[in-house]
């Protein structure tokens, strides 16, 4: 059985064209890029600002660029990548709009995944008087790296505002199963494939 993590990697891989040039923002130790290289023949670079994770990438033979995403992707040419991926990292960045715009400036497409703050178990935690802690939000309020808390509905609204077209979307529950009905209530994690309005 694939862990839920692996399932979202599979979904991302299915959205990445064969032999694509991929930029993975917040790439950790390069696990997803290694997967995309293996399964899609992707030529990938990671962007990461955490020294330990940069080192992890170098150890894993992943091409990584140590760059602070909050400062944008200055120096990267427009449309120089087929796909810019950000897996489970958007919630940890302050400059959300800038990063989204940059992703679709540098990439022809963007693939994003994030935890859904409005998942019913998260709502229940709030009802019970606590900040939610779950597999997808595995931190206490005082030690979380996350700085933005948003829902699927919120994200849709932001895409609309920024003129980003949602080309595909998949929402998963906490068992990693696709959610069709009431995704903003029943889904704990969302994956988006975005393009520009044209």
């Amino acid at each position: 059985m694939l862990a839920p993590d692996r399932l979202d990697y599979q979904v991302i891989a299915s959205w990445v064209p064969q032999d694509a040039r991929v930029l993975d923002l917040g790439c950790g130790d390069g696990e997803l890029l290694a997967h995309l290289r293996e399964t899609r023949g992707a030529v990938g670079y990671g962007v990461e600002n955490d020294p330990e994770r940069v080192l992890g990438c170098v150890r894993n033979g992943i091409s990584v660029l140590q760059i602070d995403l909050e400062q944008g992707l200055y120096g990267f040419r427009d449309a120089s990548f087929d796909v810019v991926v950000m897996s489970d990292a958007l919630q940890a960045l302050h400059r959300t709009e800038k990063v989204l715009r940059e992703m679709l400036r540098v990439g022809a497409e963007a693939i994003l995944s994030f935890p859904n703050f409005a998942y019913w178990k998260h709502r229940r935690a709030i009802m019970e008087g606590h900040m939610p802690v779950s597999d997808r939000l595995p931190y206490q309020w005082y030690d979380t790296p996350n700085v933005r808390f948003f829902t699927i509905v919120d994200f849709d609204a932001l895409c609309e505002k920024l003129g980003l077209r949602v080309r595909e979307r998949l929402v998963l529950d906490d068992q990693g199963r696709p959610v069709e009905e009431e995704p903003n209530f029943l889904g704990s994690f969302a994956l988006y494939r975005l393009g520009r309005d044209s």
Binding site: V43, V58, S63, V64, L65, R77
Partner: peptide, 11 residues
């Protein structure tokens, strides 16, 4: 990057 070379960058 623009020349499509394999590059790693550490700051």
């Amino acid at each position: 990057l623009d020349a499509r070379k394999d590059v790693t960058y550490a700051e």
